[in-house]
């Protein structure tokens, strides 16, 4: 009986994955190899032209810029998230739970809506400029919206929890006695951080980095809402090729390239995590 149930459930999951993951992925890969057609979207012959076009400076530029913006957002998330995760992990019990809740609460609101909230803050007559004028600033209102700055701000805002949570997990596990031992052996604050804290929390830094960097490449609506009608992220390029330019094969090629690059990053991450685990070992 149990045997039957297990078979049925694994079968169902396999079917689900085949229909909703494998098949669409194969369709995207197949589309990327076809030619654009005005009325049917795609048609034969098979071609690699779509991938070749990605090396066009225009599109290659989007790819490079997109990686740059995502990397910048990741670094900012790390700089903001690390101290925050440290404070949360070292806070006393009731405060720790409250702070963790504050990290998670934004998840309850759709991130598209939160992107609009950032827009209201950064707009020319938005909350930030109003606050500046109220404080006596009398120059031109700052043009923040529709700049790469606004996109990075939006990405950091939306993705920060994904950096904080894995960092919190490793910092919380960090044995405070190790820091006492380091101090006992003559290590000052900086030495304790560089020689003990950083190496022992590295798995969390890498995990947080991957969890922020990969989504940051694809969050097209953040760039749409805050960056204006520009292809700033690879995600925007893909979306616009499908919905605006109606060039499905090229959009599919960009999409497949993005998936392959993400896959490579994930592989690099798991390899480094395995190495770190080997190094630290199970206590």
């Amino acid at each position: 009986m149990q045997h039957v149930f297990r078979r049925a459930s694994t079968g169902l999951i396999a079917l689900w994955l085949a229909v909703f993951v494998l098949l669409p992925t194969l369709m995207v890969v197949a589309t990327s190899l076809l030619t654009r057609h005005d009325s049917h979207f795609v048609s034969l012959p098979l071609t690699l032209d779509n991938y070749a076009r990605l090396f066009d400076p225009l599109y290659a530029g989007v790819l490079v810029d997109s990686f740059g913006l995502a990397a910048l957002a990741t670094v900012l998330c790390l700089l903001v998230g690390y101290p925050f995760a440290w404070i949360v992990a070292r806070a006393r019990a009731p405060w720790r739970h409250l702070l963790l809740l504050l990290v998670i609460v934004p998840f309850w609101t759709n991130s598209l809506i939160r992107a609009y909230a950032v827009k209201l803050v950064l707009a020319t007559n938005g909350a930030l400029n109003s606050a500046l004028f109220a404080l006596g600033y009398s120059g031109e209102p700052l043009q923040l919206l529709y700049t790469p700055f606004a996109v990075v701000a939006g990405l950091v805002y939306v993705l920060l929890p994904f950096m904080i949570l894995p960092l919190y997990a490793v910092i919380e596990k960090l044995d405070p006695r190790l820091l006492e031992a380091a101090a006992d052996l003559g290590a000052g604050r900086l030495q304790r951080f560089v020689r003990v804290i950083l190496p022992l929390t590295l798995p969390g830094i890498v995990a947080g980095g991957v969890l922020v960097f990969l989504p940051a490449l694809g969050l097209f609506y953040v760039s749409d809402v805050l960056g204006g009608a520009k292809d700033l992220l690879v995600g925007n390029l893909v979306k616009n090729q499908f919905l605006v330019a109606r060039d499905w094969p090229f959009g599919a090629a960009a999409s497949v390239t993005l998936v392959v690059l993400m896959g490579l990053l994930l592989w690099a991450w798991s390899a480094s995590a395995r190495r770190a685990n080997q190094r630290i070992g199970e206590p």
């Binding site: 044995d175 006695r177 190790l178 006492e180 031992a181 380091a182 101090a183 006992d184 052996l185 003559g186 290590a187 000052g188 003990v196 190496p199 022992l200 190094r279 630290i280 070992g281 206590p283």
Partner: peptide, 17 residues
């Protein structure tokens, strides 16, 4: 870190890395 004494901790607190 400025005191010339050293401690052997109860659970050793060896650096795992």
């Amino acid at each position: 870190d400025a005191r010339h004494v050293n401690t052997v901790f109860q659970n050793y607190a060896l650096f795992p890395h």
